[in-house]
Amino acid sequence: MTTADPFDAALDLLRRLPPSSTQKNLNGIISLQPDLEEDLLSSVDVALTSKRCVTSGRDYLCCDYNRDGNSYRSPWSNEFDPPIEPDDAAEVTPQGRVRRMEEALNSAVDVYRELYYEGGTSSAYLWALDEGFAGCVLFKKSASQGTGGKGGWDSIHVLEVNEAATKRSADYKLTSTVILDLGLQSAAVDNLELAGNLTRQTQQKCPLNGMRDNEIEQSHVVNIGRMVEDMETRMRNLLQEVYFGKAKDVVGDLRSIQPLSEAERDRAAHQEVINKMGR
C-alpha cells in the first residue's frame, strides 16, 4: 500500500473543506506540517489581507509575491515591513525599469479600481526574470450590511511576460483567480453562505509601441492593464451567468416562495384546461 504524499493530501483536504474557511484550515494544516508552509502558501489561493504602508500611509495588499518571511513589501514605498536585512532586500526589491513599470502599473490599476469597484484596495508587484519579467495585480473589495449581510471579492492576476529579441512584441501569459464570499443571516433565510473560487488562463502576443525605453515600458503597462480588464469582465460574466444562475435554479427547485395552496390551485386549473382541450 503506497503512502499519500503529504502535500497532495493537504491540497485534497482543502478542496473538500468549506471555501470560506480556507485561511483557517490552511493555518491548521501548516501548524501540523510546518515543512509544507512554503509550498502551501505558494499554491493555495486565499482571501487577500491588507497592511498600511508606514512611509506613504496608503493601504496595500499582501500575498506570497510580495512576501519575504514574515515581511511584506509595499508597492508605494518599495520597502519591507517589518524591515529585512539590506542584503536580502537588495535581492528581492525591483529596481530600474521593472520598478518604473511597477509604479506606472500601480497608478493605472488604482484608477481602474476606483472606476470599477468604487472603493476597495489594489496593488501590483513586478519582478525581473532571466528573459522578461513577471508580476501580479491584486484587487480586494469587502462590503457588509447592518442586517447581517456580508460580501467579499478578491481577484489575483499572475502574469509572465517574455519579450521578443527585437523588443517589438511580447508574449503575455495571465492566470487569474477570483475568490467570492457572500453571506446573509436573517430570520427569513436563516444562515445563507455562498463561497468559492474561479480560475482562468489566457495567453496573448501584443505589440510594443515606440523605440525608446520609456515608450516600451508604457506599452507593457497598457497591454497588462487591457488583459486584466478583459479577464475580469469575462470572469464577472461567468460568475453572474453560471455561478449565480445555477445557484438560483437549485434554490428555486428546493424552496418555493409560492404557498402550497396556490400552487395546487394553479396545477388543478392547468390540468382542467388540458382535459377540456383533449375532449
Rank of each mutant, 00 (worst) to 15 (best):
I274Q: 11
S186P: 02
G151P: 11
R234M: 10
Y112C: 13
T2G: 07
R99H: 05
V250D: 05
T93M: 11
Q185E: 09
V221P: 00
Y116C: 01
I156D: 04
T22H: 03
D68F: 13
P75S: 03
S21K: 09
T22L: 09
D130L: 13
A143C: 07
Q258C: 13
V137E: 00
G152T: 14
Y172P: 00
S20Q: 15
F139A: 03
E264F: 15
G120L: 14
N106D: 15
S21P: 00
E262I: 11
P6C: 09
Q201L: 14
P82Y: 07
E229C: 01
H157M: 03
E91I: 06
G252E: 04
S144M: 03
G132K: 01
D130I: 12
P259Y: 05
V44G: 12
C62G: 01
F7N: 12
E262T: 14
L254W: 12
Y60H: 04
L159H: 03
G149E: 02
G28R: 14
R52C: 08
L26M: 07
R236I: 15
N106H: 15
E131A: 07
Q185R: 09
S123A: 14
I274E: 08
E114W: 09
A165K: 07
Q271L: 06
N70W: 14
C53G: 09
A4I: 10
S256Q: 15
I30T: 04
E85C: 02
I84V: 11
T93A: 06
A89D: 15
P94H: 08
K51A: 15
Y65V: 10
A104Q: 04
T3I: 14
P86E: 03
A9V: 04
L208N: 03
Q240K: 11
A108W: 13
Q258A: 15
R255Y: 12
A170E: 02
R234L: 15
Y72D: 07
Q33K: 14
K140G: 03
C53A: 11
L14V: 12
E272Y: 09
K141D: 05
N70P: 09
D130R: 05
V111T: 03
E160S: 13
A10H: 06
P18V: 13
N275P: 00
A164Q: 04
R234V: 15
A9N: 01
D81P: 00
N209Q: 08
F244P: 00
S21A: 13
Q201F: 09
I224T: 01
Q95K: 15
A104K: 08
A128N: 06
L260V: 15
